[in-house]
Design a protein around this nucleic acid. Structure first.
Length: 428
RNA sequence: GUGGCUGUAGCUCAAUCGGCAGAGCGCUGGACUGUGGAUCCAGCUGUUGCGGGUUCAACCCCCGUCAGCCACCCCA
């Protein structure tokens, strides 16, 4: 009985070795930026109870977009759609033992039940980084500076990407002066979030429909056009000054229409975008001063961000900064000359491994050209050839596929000869 | 959840008005029996996503279905 060709689960991605190499590279860059600022790596469960997210992450995210199912005991379980609530839970559980401030980061998979499209899948990876226990604008700036350090390390300059910053407290005060009450704040935030995504006329109609007066709509438009609005916020003034001190002021800019979708943000909010504005936000984050308390911990302020692996990949590709990564780890292919030399070839490969060299052995007897083509196709730079002539003399031939030359050396000198070749390559 | 586009060889894609299903790349072999990337020659590969319908005849038109992509929504 033949099975119908199985299809992958909608919205998941297969990581073939080349994809895995990119993911690992991204992980490495994130780890390096995190490490430089003293952040510690942690991981949370991929499964959480549904109520952890209830009324914290945003209605839509939990009710519409979380993977939820019942376990065999009947409990409502969700595949985590984001990390911050888990982080808040973990911190809250050890609030008496941890040394504050806490600087933690993580890189792992998340799931959202959405319709897949460009830059969005149902299963994706996120880099999360959070600073908990400090509530000043300098802490916000440090978080932003980690982002900038990351961008710099992957080759994205301030002219390629911008960190756009705003502050919810500032916007709340500004809304109040327009006579927009607290009850209407969520609506107003939504309007702010929409402003840059809609045509002006459509946005105005939508705003009026949402219950704002014509005056309020005009006032809101005025706010969103005011790039100097941040000067009315002491927090943002300090934030930008701190970015200056950290030497990354050129990566950030004020944008009054950045507000972020998650409900738990309380102060500074930011998102990074490509300069051309072609893609969605590369990452988003901000200050959440009530979240730890909301999951039953004490009052603990926090600030952090999350970066998905998809958009950053698209931006890097678009800007030509995609790394060229070697997928094949082997530095040398030990060829099998014929059945008579097969055991000798296996021994040679094993000797190289003992010497710390990544060596592939060609696992069947084939014509030499085919074996060398294999090495070429995989990008293995060196090949070892040992036929009857070499073996009789206790020698092997080391072929450099890149330099297009070869030398016959004594078998016991092979590892050293290979190291010499590889060293010359890496410095060059 | 709503709307649009697309499914043809391993990959990228062609196929005129409905009239024998093709090319490039790749792969295999050879030119070259102990030496790779170039070149040349030869060769292999198909349930045209799947199911039904219309027709003398369907990759092409119609209906359904599945999958992928894109946009909305939301967000990393």
């Amino acid at each position: 009985m033949t099975m119908k060709k199985p299809t992958p689960v909608k919205g998941t991605r297969d990581y073939y070795p080349a994809d895995m190499a990119f993911r690992n590279w991204l992980y490495g860059r994130a780890r390096e930026a995190s490490r430089k600022f003293g952040y510690q790596e942690f991981e949370a469960p991929f499964l959480e109870t549904l109520d952890l997210y209830a009324a914290k992450s945003g209605e839509e995210l939990v009710k519409e977009q979380a993977f939820v199912f019942q376990d065999r005991g009947g409990d409502e379980i969700t595949l985590r759609p984001e990390l911050t609530p888990s982080l808040a839970r973990m911190v809250s559980a050890r609030i008496g033992q941890l040394t504050f401030p806490v600087r933690w980061w993580s890189f792992g998979p998340f799931w959202r039940y959405e319709r897949p499209q460009k830059g969005r899948t149902r299963e994706f990876f996120q880099w999360n980084l959070d600073l908990i226990g400090v509530d000043n604008p300098q802490a916000d700036a440090e978080i932003a500076a980690v982002v900038c350090e990351f961008f710099r390390s992957v080759g994205l300059a301030p002219q390629d990407v911008k960190l756009q910053v705003n502050n919810r407290r500032l916007m709340e005060e500004a809304l109040a002066t327009l006579g927009i009450r607290e009850e209407a704040r969520a609506t107003a935030f939504r309007l702010i979030d929409k402003k840059e995504k809609m045509e002006t006329a459509a946005w105005e109609a939508y705003a009026l429909e949402s219950g704002l007066s014509a005056d309020q709509v005009r006032g809101l438009q005025g706010l969103l056009a005011d790039l100097e609005l941040w000067k009315q916020s002491g927090e943002l003034q300090e934030f930008f000054a701190a970015m200056e001190a950290l030497g990354v002021r050129d990566y950030v800019e004020y944008n009054p229409s950045v507000i972020r979708g998650l409900d738990y943000y309380t102060g500074t909010v930011f998102e990074a975008r490509d300069a051309a504005g072609e893609f969605r936000a590369i990452l988003g984050g901000g200050r959440y001063d009530n979240l730890v308390a909301d999951v039953g911990g004490g009052k603990l302020p926090g600030v952090g961000f999350a970066m998905g692996d998809l958009i950053i990949g698209l931006v890097l590709k678009k800007s030509g900064k995609e790394p060229s990564l070697r997928v094949v780890p082997a530095d040398v292919l030990v060829t099998t000359f014929s059945a008579q030399e097969r055991d000798a070839a296996m021994r040679t490969a094993q000797e190289l491994r003992k010497a710390g060299i990544a060596a592939e052995w060609y696992p069947s007897v084939e014509r030499l050209p085919k074996q060398l083509k294999y090495a070429d196709a995989l990008g293995i730079p060196l090949a070892v050839i040992a036929g009857p002539d070499e073996i009789r003399d206790g020698k092997v031939t080391l072929k450099d596929l890149t330099a297009r030359d070869q030398a016959t050396v004594r078998a016991e000198d092979l590892a050293q000869e290979i190291r010499k070749r590889l060293a010359g390559r890496q410095t060059g």
